[in-house]
Design a protein around this nucleic acid. Structure first.
Length: 554
RNA sequence: UGCCCGAUAGUAUAGUGGUAGUACGACAGAUUUUGGUUCUGUACGCCUAGGUUCGAGUCCUGGUCGGGCAACCA
């Protein structure tokens, strides 16, 4: 089943480690900070970390990196857990960096005892100045030479709450002249008199990322700690802590994060979109968040397939959102139930049928199914078809309905346009057609060749529904590379609401499905805003439309 | 001016010294009671200059280009 595929560089490393006997099994982790909702970029990391665990018979922990109480919240913890499970993954253990606060405090004191950490009384500004620049070495200050005893006492006082925020920090004593800025005596503990979502008010000092992440990995015996490229310069510090503390040597590896065309992928920017009401929330169907995509109608399968196809490497990338759309179409084509909905109606009267004529026709629920099932649809003398499926003066290569032309009404009769009725202003109000008798499925004339088959809804039986059509959130491909404020590139036309589309009754009364294909229009799902009175559908993605492409060519 | 990472069709991603593959996209055609699906075909690529070698996308050196690194963020 699994096709022979080349290994990515992480799989190669793991296979070498396993082969060399370095590990008997692997343990990875997914380490989100609970300060925002997960997006498709996180999905790539989730699929990678959990996927590796599954592929090599190992396990994967979920560990919340909650070392900064002022930005973190349990609301985010809950959404993150839900999103991971929805994607289809199970963690071995649910853990929190905050579980290790006591242990991390002990690690810090060990460093102090070894003369490898010191309490610094300098202000943030002073520390920044003394740090130097990438091209200029930093300088050592007077606090750097404090005695072990003094440092131990001071650090204990920090923990005890004797000092205000920012009054003191604990720094690792490494090398103020290092060409790597992160090695210039990085701050490892800071004072924050803040309420933590899990530890409450037990602590007023919190470890920095660099003093929490690697040690957490080590405590859990994580074998392969996988993160994104921007942490490459942190790796020497990651290794330094492990070496000096003499703890389990977890190893950090980095891969390139996902970037998608026509969207943004930073939590900061997504939060801004939410806070400034450019979207309705984190789960707005236009958002690249997992919750937004779920609401939009994307399936876990399609997201996993996408993450698989984008690959894992170290070079920066910008993935065409078209690939995502391909993945969702491919999955939805297999599972979506077919229904007919007319979005922009024009009335067709079939004059050769008796006044009040009505009958039931059968149409397949999904032609892709191994065993095709059918539903009944009311057909009658008056039906709605799409405005765009009729042209009074047809364009070249237009082979839908036009005066004197024939089309098939899906699962019903072939009709021929005989007359166009207009109002005083010259607008077309109605198209009058004749029908070909015996042209239904199984009829004597069913084999007649027509150039097109169009969808329709019986006028008398149509059910009004609301459709929400989404377009890309941004107007430019590479929002990250665009100059100026990213908000200048927001597509203000990204939501188009059709309050009164006409749907076939089966949509309301028939089998309920999570995913529908509205014939020839796209894939849709029911939105949570639906009420007993009004069904609301989100368009997940359109169908491939070669006719639209043809038209663009002009 | 320092350090680090990277560079293969339009976009991604393989190729581990021996014929540059794959996917999406594009284009053309076939099939189709969805201009959907499916199928077939076509076009398009190793950043650059040297070097090592019988042979270099791959190894070495220089250059160019892109990205990152100086939050009491992660």
């Amino acid at each position: 089943m699994a096709e022979e595929r080349s290994l990515n560089f992480l799989e190669e490393i793991i296979e070498e480690d396993l082969k060399a006997g370095k590990y008997t099994s692997i343990l990875t982790r997914f380490p989100p900070e609970p300060n925002g909702y997960l997006h498709i970029g996180h999905a790539k990391s989730i699929c990678l970390n959990f996927g590796l665990g599954i592929k090599y018979g190992g396990k994967t922990n979920l560990r919340f990196d909650d070392t900064n109480p002022v930005t973190e919240d349990t609301e985010y913890v809950d959404s993150i857990k839900q999103d991971i499970q929805w994607l289809g993954f199970n963690w071995a253990q649910e853990l929190y960096a905050s579980d290790y606060f006591e242990q991390l405090y002990t690690f810090a004191t060990q460093l102090i005892q070894k003369g490898l950490a010191y309490v610094d009384d300098s202000s943030a500004e002073q520390i920044a100045i003394e740090k130097g620049t990438p091209t200029q070495p930093g300088v050592e200050n007077v606090y750097r030479s404090r005695s072990v005893q003094e440092n131990l006492a001071l650090f204990a006082e920090m923990r005890a709450g004797k000092y205000a925020d920012g009054e003191k920090v604990l720094r690792a004593k490494i090398d103020m002249a290092s060409p790597n800025m992160h090695m210039r005596d990085p701050i490892i503990y800071r004072i924050k008199h803040a309420h933590h979502h899990r530890t409450g008010d037990a602590w007023c000092i919190y470890p920095m990322y660099d003093f929490a992440h690697g040690q957490s990995d080590s405590i859990e015996n994580i074998t392969h700690s996988i993160c994104t490229l921007e942490f490459i310069p942190h790796r020497p510090l990651y290794d330094w802590c492990i070496e000096k503390l003499e703890i389990f040597p977890s190893r950090q590896y980095e891969f390139a994060r996902l970037n998608l065309t026509y969207t943004v992928m930073s939590k900061r920017r997504l939060l801004q979109l939410v806070n400034e009401k450019h979207v309705t929330g984190w789960d707005d169907p236009r958002m690249p968040t997992i919750s937004g995509m779920r609401r939009r109608g994307y399936t876990p399968e399609s997201l996993r397939d996408f993450c698989d196809r984008v690959g894992i490497a170290k070079r920066e990338n910008l993935i065409d959102v078209g690939l995502l759309e391909f993945c969702v179409r491919e999955h939805l084509n297999k599972i979506a139930v077919r229904r007919m909905v007319v979005m922009d109606p024009i009335k067709v009267v079939i004059t050769t049928l008796a006044e009040g004529f009505t009958e039931l026709v059968q149409s397949e629920n999904n032609p892709e199914e191994a065993e095709v099932t059918y539903r009944d649809i009311h057909f009658s003398r008056e039906v709605y078809i799409e405005q765009e499926d009729f042209m009074e003066t047809p364009a070249k290569k237009f082979f839908r309905l036009a005066p004197g032309q024939m089309v098939r009404l899906k699962s019903a009769y072939i009709i021929k346009c005989e007359e166009v009725v207009k109002d005083a202003a010259g607008n077309i109000t109605e198209v009058r057609c004749s029908h070909v008798p015996e042209s239904k499925t199984g009829g004597a004339n069913a084999g007649m060749q027509v150039k097109a088959t169009i969808h329709w809804v019986s006028a008398a039986h149509a059910v009004p529904v609301e459709l929400r059509l989404y377009d890309r959130l941004f107007k430019v491909e590479n929002v990250g590379a665009a100059e100026g404020d990213f908000k200048d590139y927001i597509n203000h036309d990204s939501l188009h609401i059709i309050p009164n589309a006409y749907a076939e009754p089966a949509l309301k009364t028939g089998t309920t499905s999570d995913h529908y294909q509205f014939l020839r229009k796209g894939y849709f799902c029911v939105d949570k805003d639906s009420t007993d009175d009004t069904l609301i559908f989100n368009r997940t993605v359109t169908l491939r439309d070669t006719w639209a492409k043809e038209q663009k060519k002009g």
